[in-house]
Write a protein that binds this DNA or RNA. Structure first.
Length: 107
DNA sequence: ATCTTGACAATTG
DNA sequence: GCAATTGCCAAGA
């Protein structure tokens, strides 16, 4: 029985669902998402999946940060700046020195 | 089939 | 704490 889809779209779907599982007000790393999605070491694959997300998606992509606890997106209003703003609305400030990342890290 | 790129991670200086 | 290097895995040209 082939219920295991190796299709790229199915992989994206699984990653998105995992991201949706991140509780509000918390953040997770790409590596954590990858491991939880069933593909440890494929942190980059997570980045690809998130990049493929449409605008106005219900997937909380902004809750995913890199291992440094920082936005991995390029600077700009539609990049790190956007992510930072959205997280701040949930009470998460990725400010250096505050240790907010470790404090709100979800695993 | 080969090479390059990418919203990463861990290690080292 | 930051910058450079190496490793990993999959998608795109």
């Amino acid at each position: 029985m082939d219920h295991d889809d190796d299709s790229p779209e199915s992989i994206d779907q699984r990653i998105w669902l995992t991201v949706c599982a991140i509780p509000r007000g918390m953040v997770a790393t790409y590596g954590d998402i990858a491991q939880r999605a069933g593909m440890p070491g494929a942190a980059r694959r997570v980045g690809v999946a998130l990049r493929r997300l449409p605008r106005g998606t219900s997937v909380p992509w902004y809750r995913v940060v890199n291992a440094s606890g920082r936005s991995s997106l390029p600077p700009g209003p539609d990049g790190a700046d956007r992510q930072h703003a959205l997280l701040q609305e949930e009470g998460v400030a990725l400010l250096p020195g505050t240790g907010a990342f470790r404090k709100h890290r979800w695993r």
